[in-house]
Amino acid sequence: MADSSSPPPAAEVASVATPINLILFSLFAFLLYLRLKPSKPQTLPRAPPPTVFRTFTPPELFPYNGLNGMPVYLAVRGRVFDVTSGRNFYGPGGPYANFAGKDASRGLACGSFDEDMLTKDLDGPLDTLEDLDAEQFEALRGWEERFSEKYLVVGKLVPVGSEEAKAPAALQSNSN
């Protein structure tokens, strides 16, 4: 007669290598590997090229419209802003794309995005905005303040043929 307190025969002993134990052990080993594996060194994003404050004439500003990989600049009351970070608004296809590479002052003051608000003759005089009323000037000041808080001023807009436009680039950056 077999003693009930004696250990069961060897054939009846449960094996440790059951399918569920193998799955759990594999999962544990995988998680341990993920935890202890060396991580890739972190790299910082590439810095944007340095921006030098310079003077722009309307024809020089025109290519900065976001096309062909160019940054997006626009002018407001003679100050040129780099609005590239707002490319979705001011770049190609954006609601304010008409202003890219141009003097946006009149359009912003009048709340109009029409082409007729922009200076057609890039070689002509700059828009003096003399005919704007007080409400339009106030709207323009609000836009200018918003741009000043959000975007970098990269230059100033001068008419073609002005003394500042004729000065060499090295003198332009030193005079500002």
Rank of each mutant, 00 (worst) to 15 (best):
E12V: 08
G101A: 06
Y64I: 01
V83R: 00
S39N: 04
L27S: 10
Y73F: 13
V52Y: 06
Q136C: 12
P9A: 15
D121Y: 04
S112V: 05
A97M: 11
N88W: 10
P9M: 11
K150P: 00
T128E: 15
V52P: 04
A104F: 05
V158I: 08
D3Y: 06
Y33G: 10
L36H: 03
L32N: 07
E145V: 13
P71M: 07
P38G: 02
N88H: 14
L140S: 13
L31F: 14
A2W: 03
F53P: 03
L36I: 06
D121K: 08
L31C: 14
F113M: 14
A139V: 14
A75S: 15
F28H: 00
P49A: 15
E145S: 15
A29M: 10
R87T: 06
P41M: 03
P48K: 13
Q136Y: 07
G66K: 08
L126G: 12
V16A: 12
L61D: 00
A29I: 14
G155L: 00
P19L: 01
K166E: 00
D121I: 07
R79Y: 05
T43C: 08
V80A: 04
G91V: 11
P45L: 11
E163C: 01
G161W: 02
E12H: 11
G107E: 03
T57C: 07
G107R: 01
G86F: 12
L140P: 15
A169M: 00
L74M: 10
D82P: 04
P63W: 02
F89M: 13
F25A: 15
V52G: 05
F89S: 13
N21K: 06
V153I: 13
A100G: 10
V80G: 05
Y33P: 05
S5L: 15
G91Q: 08
V80M: 02
T128S: 15
D116V: 11
